[in-house]
Amino acid sequence: MIPAPFQYFAPKTVNEAIGLLQQHGDDAKLLAGGHSLLPALKLRLAQPAVLIDISRVAELKSITSEGDRLVIGAGATYREIATNEAVRSGCLVLAECVGQIGDIQVRNRGTIGGSLAHADPAADLPAVVLALGATINVMGPNGARSIAADDMFVAMMTTAISPGEVMTSVTFPILGKGEGAAYAKLRQPASRYAIVGVAAYVKLDGGTVAACRIGVTGAGAVAVRQPAAEAALVGTSGDDAAVAAAANAAGDGIDYLGDIHASAEYRQAMVKVYTRRALTEALRRARA
């Protein structure tokens, strides 16, 4: 449980961090809250020569509302997000999702940027980011750019962020009248990661579902949308039968994982169960 030796830098600005990344290239790893990286270091599963600790970069910490958007600094901790009033009133599902990650010690340290950049297949946030159609904002040597949620998660622990880039913030929509979102999850009891986590977003127009997005995490190597289930719900009244049909259509396009905590078969079944639960709650909220 003792990491291999490494060099340590603690930049104060994003530009400084980018400069260090350029300087050290593949030898360097960004350190945010450390809750994924430090265990890997301690088990010597990861042995980077250089750690660039961005937890002291003040500009990554802010949480602001901008019109109908929430902009969450990549360095904001789960606890800061979960207890932020603007987040709770504008995007409750995000607050709820990060408010149940790990335990209180994890939530005091872990950051939204760290989780999304690490892209653990069982992390909770990717599902919510997908369902809400959030945008990941990054900065690199060539300036700033934004990555759509749907383009973000490429493969197991691989994102669309380029090696020299630093995530600066994540933009979420503020949900309005007729919109609802919810996250439902089966926990792995030891790690409290998701065995299956499903985030659902719905928008009602009159009595009809006008839009639906579903993000699934935990089940496969990478978090994915569920287009068939979404399509099954859109245009319906969102009643129980419609939800059941949509849930039944969920589960395709996932490269299911099987391990000691859950077989692929069980994960596949649970994607349907938790899709139903997430949709039911999202619809309830949209109608409220």
């Binding site: 265990p39 335990d103 792995q188 009891p189 030891a190 790690s191 000691i260 905590h261």
Partner: peptide, 20 residues
């Protein structure tokens, strides 16, 4: 849990579920 190669799969508290 040991796998068939005798590796302890539940080798950390991330996989061995001591209840909170």
């Amino acid at each position: 849990v040991y796998d068939e190669n005798g590796q302890l799969v539940t080798g950390t508290l991330m996989d061995y579920a001591v209840p909170a």
